[in-house]
Design a protein around this nucleic acid. Structure first.
Lengths: 170, 170
DNA sequence: TTACCGAGCGTTATAATATAACATCCGATT
DNA sequence: AATCGGATGTTATATTATAACGCTCGGTAA
């Protein structure tokens, strides 16, 4: 398959994983979930999701716009933002609040709310279920009597792989 | 003292607390910390901090700009953003990432990183130390080998006071 | 004193992010 | 055939944020 995702994918920690698998799993899951839910993963939405999954980096909306223009001539901001809205609603991507950017969600089906570890060096975002944290948070929120709509738990810093590089080289 | 803060303050849950005390404590703490740290809480910075403390609501940068213009003729975006940068650096305010907005920090001296509970109804932001959550998070981050620069832990929903109003009235 | 330096601020311009509003298309239903 | 709703096209604009450059002023080194 000559997808743009495969063509332009650029992973800073290459030995670590088979990214094609990430992408195909994410897309398969997305397609399946949309069928089950009776919502449409239209070509545009699919393309945007694929572009987001090009890497594990957080991507800006206008970056996506630039990258979808060759595929979708005449794409405008609304094209992207509508697709992003849909993908977020369906839990297929995360909005990274502290970056105004977007990243694929690996656990779309089950557990969408996760701890996001955002590396300032490689710009990758790691999702972690962080069950202990989530449990403590639920308790805290219950104590506070707060009715939750959504959560954003984001930590910025240097990921373990980049930290290792720093130790070795910088 | 005929401060703008007192003049325009508007609290949706009025019986709950003495807001003048919040403001004066926040400003006193800020002044003290800046002296100790050898940094300047200039008139502009002080005014912006005061405007932010007008309420416990998250405030947008351009709202602050509009509100500082009468006091500081010719104020421009940079005026506000520079002050905000300073106040954030000094831990005197929080940037609410999921709103692109700002709110005073009650615990400037000691424990800046807190859980923020953001009410969609009254728009107030409650800070909570949430020590159990923070502890679990620290553990998680240590396990992940992630070097932390900053954290944003934000929950959006309905605060306990507004939830009570909903139960009674809506 | 004079020269310099850096922090803070004024000012202009523009970049980057996001939404509103209305038109059109197209497939499903009546 | 009529119509209805979801998705998309299209134009315009709102909102958020930064860049870049110059001035002032107070401290300090020559």
């Amino acid at each position: 398959m000559n997808t743009p995702a495969e063509a332009s994918h650029n992973h800073p920690h290459p030995s670590e994983h088979d990214h094609k698998k990430c992408v195909s799993e994410a897309l398969d899951t997305a397609e399946h979930l949309c069928v089950v839910r009776g919502v449409q993963l239209t070509p545009i939405r699919h393309q945007v999701l694929e572009l987001i999954w090009d890497s594990h980096k957080a991507v800006k909306a206008y970056e996506l716009l630039d990258r979808i223009k060759p595929l979708k001539d005449g794409a405008k901001p609304a094209t992207i933002y509508r697709a992003l809205d849909f993908l977020i609603e369906q839990g297929l991507i995360h909005r990274v609040e502290s970056l105004n950017a977007f990243v694929g969600c690996s656990s779309s089906g089950h557990q969408h709310e996760q701890l996001l570890l955002i590396c300032k060096h490689c710009n990758e975002v790691e999702e972690r279920p962080a069950t202990e944290v989530m449990q403590a948070l639920s308790q805290e929120l219950e104590q506070a009597g707060f009715v939750v709509h959504s959560k954003a738990i984001e930590v910025r810093g240097i990921c373990v792989k980049c930290a290792a590089l720093y130790d070795d080289q910088d």
